[in-house]
Simulated scan of single mutants.
Amino acid sequence: MLKMRLERPRMIGVFCLLFILTNCINKYVLSVLKFTFPTIFQGWQTLVGALVLHLLMLSGKLDFSLKTLNSLYICIFREDVALWLPSMFFFVGTIYAGSRALASLPVPVFFAFQNLASVISLTVDVILKSKVNVWSYIFNMALVVSSIGVAKTDPQNNTDGYFWVCYHVLSLGAYSTYQKLIKGRLKLRPAGRLYCNYVYSMILFAPASYFLGEALEASKFPHLYFAKFYICCGLSGILGVFLSLVVIQLEPLLESSGISLDFLSSAAKIITSVLSLVIFPFTLTVPYVSWLAINLLASLFSEELLPLAHPSNSNVVENT
């Protein structure tokens, strides 16, 4: 127990650091370097993720609970992987749309709309007749109202960015909802799910980059021969997969602490949003900042009160 208490703060610190670095580096590549080729960028990230996970599995550091995982052909046709297949599809939509949205929108705005996935989760809980704390209704309604306020007061008003962030939220909500529907039936461990997500995404993005013409356009990218581009892309892929692995390890450590992973993610989003104001150019107005602050603060409690009141109904939405 003492070891767990000592390990928990360290893991929380590592999670926050990886979360901040991963999102800031992604934003830098997508908006500052303007590498707006999501099939290539996400294809690279998922390739790195799959390789890292596979190496960890071969070294015995991870157990995917699939003895035949060395053979991708057999893995794909296993019953558990087949059951997880819709989640892989939603995962692709989530990271593709997220990449398009983050390239166009400021980091705080991206997070503010991403928080709407909590509203989808709450709606599903109501439909499934799960017990929901009344405060969760209030804070989730605050998320909806503040998101509308952010869009209405945005001085830049990037329509394309808002379209893709809405697609990102719907995909993230579908990903979370499907996990609830198959809860108890899926025996595939979290690391195995992550591995299958990466492999499936990599298989889809590779031909898509060619057929969508992004591979040809990327060959003309002005920063293609700059070291900073490759360093950032490499860090993005490596930090991203380790962030996901930390989430997997951190979840059981938080179960007995009264702190949900959603709460921790919301806190990390606030820290990252504040730092992004210093790192990236951002047009500010008083109403705009006010709505963003309401949204990010409301997200701290939109799901945190649920697991405290009803531990059996606690839900953790994975970060992508």
Rank of each mutant, 00 (worst) to 15 (best):
N315Y: 12
E318S: 11
N315R: 15
A101H: 14
Y198W: 12
S257C: 08
M11E: 03
A268L: 02
G184V: 03
K180Y: 09
C16H: 11
I238S: 10
A215G: 04
L122H: 14
N26D: 01
N295I: 06
V107T: 15
A103Q: 15
L181K: 13
S236K: 13
H168M: 11
S209Y: 08
N23A: 07
F89R: 04
E318N: 03
W164Q: 03
L170T: 06
L297D: 06
M57G: 02
L264Q: 02
L204T: 01
A97R: 10
G184C: 07
P155N: 04
Y167Q: 11
L284V: 06
A268G: 05
L69S: 11
L83T: 13
Y96Q: 05
S31C: 03
V150A: 07
I148K: 10
P86Y: 13
Y225V: 06
L21R: 01
V81P: 05
R100M: 11
V81M: 15
L264T: 00
E255F: 02
L253Q: 10
K269E: 08
S257A: 06
F221P: 05
I120M: 12
A191S: 09
L30N: 07
K34M: 07
G149D: 06
A174Y: 09
S314D: 07
P38C: 09
F37D: 03
E79L: 08
V169L: 06
S314G: 06
V124D: 06
S118E: 01
G149A: 03
E304C: 05
Y178D: 03
F113L: 08
A309L: 12
K27Y: 15
L306Y: 09
I279H: 13
G213N: 00
E304Y: 14
L308K: 15
A50L: 10
L72H: 07
I12F: 04
A142M: 15
Y200Q: 02
V247K: 14
S59G: 09
F242M: 09
V145D: 08
N157T: 03
L212I: 00
I182W: 14
N197K: 01
Q156C: 02
V145Q: 02
Y230E: 08
A191C: 09
L30R: 07
S147Q: 14
G60F: 10
V165K: 01
T68D: 11
L275D: 03
L300C: 07
I120K: 03
F110W: 04
I76D: 13
S31F: 14
S59K: 09
F111H: 10
C232V: 08
S256K: 10
P106S: 03
K34W: 09
S87N: 09
L261E: 08
S299L: 10
L188V: 04
F41R: 02
C233G: 00
E303T: 05
G258I: 01
V316F: 15
C75P: 01
M4S: 15
A227G: 10
V169N: 04
L181I: 14
Y167H: 07
Y230P: 05
Y195D: 01
S146M: 11
S104G: 12
F35P: 11
W84P: 07
Y225L: 08
A267E: 08
V247Y: 15
T285A: 01
L306C: 06
V150N: 13
S65M: 12
M88H: 08
A82N: 02
R185I: 08
V14Y: 15
L116G: 04
